[in-house]
Simulated assay, not measured.
Amino acid sequence: MRNVILDKVNIADEADKVKEFLTIKTLMRLNDHEVNLIKLKGEYEWHKHEDEDKVFMVVEGTLELQFRDRVVTLEKNECIVVPKGEENKPIGKEEVTLLIFEPIRDRY
């Protein structure tokens, strides 16, 4: 991943390159965070992030984000912060493209 000042990113073009669901594509890094693109269709498992808050932003489609006590529906250009430790279950009834803002971590 290049870290070049003033490189621009076309989110729609990058989304077109993602062919598999749940494959993370890192678009850029900023300080100790990265902006990741991911596509989802169907239900993801119940989970929580113990150490960090995450921002989910819908680029295309509709995301249903289930929490244990409520459901939040996000449409295109809407976002939400999921606090650390908050159990959630993302659902894309149709294909949904998301930007996720999260701390950089080793995935391997």
Results as ranks from 00 to 15, higher is better:
Asn3Phe: 08
Thr23Ile: 12
Glu94Lys: 15
Thr23His: 13
Pro83Glu: 10
Glu20His: 10
Leu65Pro: 04
Thr23Trp: 00
Ile38Trp: 00
Lys25Ser: 10
Val55Tyr: 04
Asn3Gly: 15
Asp7Pro: 03
Ile11Gln: 09
Lys8Arg: 08
Lys48Asp: 12
Phe21Asn: 13
Gly61Phe: 03
Val4Trp: 05
Ile11Met: 06
Ile11Cys: 10
Gly42Tyr: 01
Asn3Thr: 12
Glu102Asp: 07
Val35Gly: 13
Glu50Arg: 09
His49Gln: 09
Gly61Ile: 03
Asn88Trp: 01
Val4Met: 14
Glu34Ser: 12
Lys84Gly: 01
Leu65Thr: 01
Asn3Tyr: 05
Asp32Phe: 06
Pro90Tyr: 01
Asn10Lys: 11
Gly92Trp: 00
Val82Thr: 03
Val59Met: 13
Gly85Val: 06
Glu45Lys: 12
Asp7Ser: 13
Val81Tyr: 04
Ile104Arg: 06
Val71His: 02
Asp16Lys: 15
Pro103Val: 09
Pro90Ala: 01
Leu37Val: 11
Glu87Gln: 10
Phe56Lys: 08
Gly92Cys: 06
His49Gly: 03
Leu98Arg: 09
Asn88Gln: 14
Asp53Met: 10
Lys25Met: 13
Glu87Lys: 08
Val96Trp: 02
Asn31Ala: 09
Asn31Ser: 10
Lys54Leu: 15
Val81Phe: 01
Asn31Trp: 13
Gly42Ser: 05
Ala12Gln: 14
Glu52Asn: 12
Ile24Gly: 08
Leu6Cys: 09
Asp106Lys: 13
Leu63Val: 00
Pro83Ser: 10
Pro83Cys: 00
Glu45Cys: 01
Thr26Trp: 00
Lys41Pro: 00
Gly61Tyr: 04
Glu64Pro: 03
Glu78Thr: 03
Met57Arg: 09
Phe67Tyr: 15
Phe21Gly: 02
Glu50Ala: 14
Lys48Ile: 00
Arg105Leu: 11
Ile80Arg: 06
Val96Ser: 02
Glu50Leu: 10
Lys84His: 09
Val82Asn: 01
Val81Lys: 07
Tyr108Gln: 10
Glu64Leu: 11
Val82Met: 01
Val35Pro: 04
Leu63Asn: 00
Glu78Leu: 06
Ile24Thr: 06
Ile5Asn: 04
